[in-house]
Write a protein that binds this DNA or RNA. Structure first.
Length: 209
DNA sequence: GACCAGGCACATC
DNA sequence: GATGTGCATGGT
């Protein structure tokens, strides 16, 4: 799959960001959110000159929330960005470089312990900001593998991640491109299946309001 | 107006 | 442990 994708589409030059720190913030902002909206929020942070560890450490959580409204879930994401920043200062004097000098498995555990950082966010940070050999699994990855009947609908994150990592050599460049290519084709060719409006099973889920 | 987007935490059973 | 739900904006 990787060879075919890479040969036909070519390198994706991921992650789209000017710095490793921007990758970290983007990884939190993009949780269940389209990248277009994330770009707006990142632009607003740059506009206010607060897209760096120290500025975000000093900034008020409420002010941060109003700055990133375009990305949606802004109250919760403001809290999550603050959680990460506090972690960064508490353990690494606000330095991403120091953070990434930590042993990979230990750092992953520490990242997962931060409120608001789950497996995909942690792995995105490790691979795309830290250049660590870890495979990122996202909604597109799961959906594509599901359509190709490579995994079961019940497959969990670690199960899918191990499928890649146990069968491929730990190559940062390849992991980077592979995931980026999956997202690229997923956006165009592997959309969610539309629900059938007339199906009586629809509407069983309560509408939020 | 409904549906969707590069998740995650938490309540409830 | 599994399942359901809130979080929210902007594009189609």
């Amino acid at each position: 799959m990787y060879q075919k994708l890479y040969q036909t589409i070519g390198p994706r030059h991921w992650w789209p960001a000017d710095s490793p720190f921007e990758v970290v913030v983007g990884a939190i902002l993009t949780q269940n959110t389209s990248w277009k909206n994330v770009e707006k929020a990142l632009g607003a942070l740059k506009e206010k000159n607060i897209l760096d560890p120290l500025q975000l450490y000093k900034v008020d959580e409420q002010y941060l929330a109003t700055t990133i409204t375009a990305s949606g879930f802004f109250n919760i994401k403001s809290k999550r960005i603050k959680s990460f920043i506090n972690f960064l200062f508490e353990h690494y004097q606000g330095s991403l470089e120091k953070m990434f000098s930590e042993k990979l498995t230990l750092l992953r555990e520490k990242l997962l312990a931060i409120n608001g950082v789950g497996p995909e966010t942690a792995d995105s940070i490790l691979l795309y900001a830290g250049g660590k050999p870890i495979f990122v699994v996202d909604a597109y990855t799961k959906r594509i593998l599901l359509r190709h009947k490579v995994i079961s609908p019940r497959a969990c994150y670690s199960e899918i991640q191990e499928l890649f990592m146990n069968n491929l050599k730990a190559d940062v460049k390849m992991f980077n491109e592979y995931h980026a290519l999956l997202v690229y084709i997923g956006k165009y060719y592997c959309k969610r299946v539309p629900q059938c409006r007339s199906c009586p099973l629809n509407g069983t889920r309560k509408k939020s309001h």
